[in-house]
């Protein structure tokens, strides 16, 4: 028997699969939202084009 889009299994499990899809999308949205919030508020993360700003780097020869 050919597996079709209307197979019995797909119909029976539609609510489960749709629910899981919504949950996974929600999870992605949460991680994205958290990233935005954390980056916006993280002043020490200030950077430009993946290169740290020179103003944030410790001056050469200065001991920590």
């Amino acid at each position: 028997m050919a597996i079709t889009r209307d197979s019995d299994l797909h119909i029976r499990r539609f609510s489960r699969n749709a629910g899981l899809g919504v949950v996974l999308l929600g999870f992605v949205a949460i991680v994205f939202g958290l990233t935005v919030v954390k980056v916006e508020r993280g002043s020490t993360l200030e950077a430009y084009d993946h290169q740290p700003r020179t103003s944030l780097l410790p001056a050469e020869g200065v001991q920590k």
């Binding site: 489960r16 749709a18 629910g19 899981l20």
Partner: peptide, 11 residues
């Protein structure tokens, strides 16, 4: 198993 399959609401 078919008759008693869990739905999203069961989880």
């Amino acid at each position: 198993q078919q008759d008693n399959e869990a739905r999203f609401g069961d989880y």
